[in-house]
Amino acid sequence: MTGEPFYNFAYLDEQTKRMIRRAILKAIAIPGYQVPFASREMPMPYGWGTGGVQVTAAIIGRDDVLKVIDQGADDTTNAVSIRAFFQKVTNVAVTTDTGAATIIQTRHRIPEHPLIDGQIIVYQVPIPEPLRFLEPRETETRTMHALEEYGLMHVKLYEDIARHGEIATTYAYPVKVEGRYVMDPSPTPKFDNPKMHMSPALQLFGAGRERRIYAIPPYSDVVSLDFDDHPFTVQRFDKPCALCGGDDVYLDEVIMDDRGTRMFVCSDTAHCDGRRSEGHVGKQAAVEEARR
């Protein structure tokens, strides 16, 4: 399918692209700071990735290879829809292979396969302000960032510890970038937070409805907030992926029947497929194999 002549390459008009590109350069120069930008209406609804789509549309060129994931999977409906959109308006090559992609647009996950120098990961962000649920007013949170006044966030995390014995934030876990700005990593599980630290890839974040763009340049310090006596930890699964046998990966829980039988499988489907094609076999996959 070719791009429709009615719309510009990558859908956005050149003036809009310039505006977004300028915001991206500022975001890179001030890591973790949310740059306001004049977000446009996109042909998909707000909250469905319009920020990420605008960022990708502003950076993508004909030689790029695009991967789009949602919940770690390339074949979830919204990932399919966004990928089809870019195929239609840019005609670029697409892939599910993390290693082969030059741009990865994601919602809620960072791929398991380590990102490399030269790659760009674009996050779709619903609420870019990490302080928003503590202070609903933009005028207030802006001042808090200006004064580097993050006490409220620490109080909230500490109250969690007092009440639950641990920090009860499991996703969208706040990070501090380059020792200055507290930043929302988008609703990725905190399992993925360590992947952001000193990543060789450029990380761009787009929030369309909230009209903010922010960035983490490659090789930047990204620290998950914690306390000396309650250090940051990530969720560990007590069993490997049932399909590929992979350890140290994020797993989805799949309900198999109405008797509560459950199976845990890789959330990153491309990673799982890759391992299985290399011959790794998980418990469930072995059962299926034997049955055949």
Binding site: F9, E14, K17, L25, I28, A58, G61, R62, A215, P218
Partner: peptide, 19 residues
């Protein structure tokens, strides 16, 4: 084409500032 030239030059600038 100015569209692709602008895109290529933007990527050069983005790479320059991010690296």
């Amino acid at each position: 084409d100015p569209v692709f030239r602008a895109q290529a030059n933007f990527r050069a600038l983005m790479d320059a500032l991010s690296r």
